[in-house]
Design a protein around this nucleic acid. Sequence first.
DNA 1: AGTACCACCTGACGGC
DNA 2: TGCCGTCAGGTGGTAC
Length: 257
Amino acid sequence: MPELPEVETYTRYFTRHALDQKIARVDVRDERILGTLRKDAFARRLKGRSFVSARRHGKHLFADAGGVWLHLHFGMTGDLAYYREEAPRFARVVFDFDNGAHLAFEDMRLFGLVDLVDDPDAFIEESGLGPDPLTLRFAGFASLLERRRGAIKSLLMAQEIIAGLGNLYVDETLYQASIHPRRPVDSLSSKETRALYDTMRRILREAITRHARGADLPGNALYHHREEGERCPRCGGTIQRAVVFGRTTYFCGRHQR
DNA sequence: AGTACCACCTGACGGC
DNA sequence: TGCCGTCAGGTGGTAC
């Protein structure tokens, strides 16, 4: 479930485990995961270097290898594993370090991406990614909503508008802010806009904190009740299922307006 | 500008 | 046990 909180967790994991070790070998096990480079060129540019830092923007992770940056996107099933013994089943790229440890990028469905970029900021700019919600001030968030129409869910899902939320955290945010996923953006009151911003950031931060302890969202989160007909733990209403912006959407038919 | 639909890829799960 | 349809939390392209 790699949305912003999960990618933040991977970034911390990368920082904790994979920095300052010389890359002895790069093993591309499935070339379909690569972006702009072929296997040999990709490996050649990283071999002999070390990762010195890692950062995140939205759902994208960047790791500085000294003059070139590793760029990871986790798609729907991407993950990282640092290990010494056995590679995970769906390892697509494995970095072998000179201390005998390995870092695997795993991705069962191959929707992820492993690539190199010269400059993450330039990449963010060129690919048209919106601001990251954790560094976005309220005024900036409010201005994203100006002169826009359509369903609030569509807007929150759009990475070129705000980068990092996916289906799960959008549903969770709207649920906890008591806003219906199809609510037209231009119908939100300033109070609702404020609630949306505060709720979104609280949920993202809370998820990151809880991931660090190996936990997921609290039991009363919509996350644990994503099934049609479930009882809403907040108001006792009934959880509904719908398709919004092409994505399966769950919401409470009673308290989300 | 906003939305619907398809495609990419692989596995899990339920029904028969 | 095996086959088939359906679904999955992402993104990009096309068409209206």
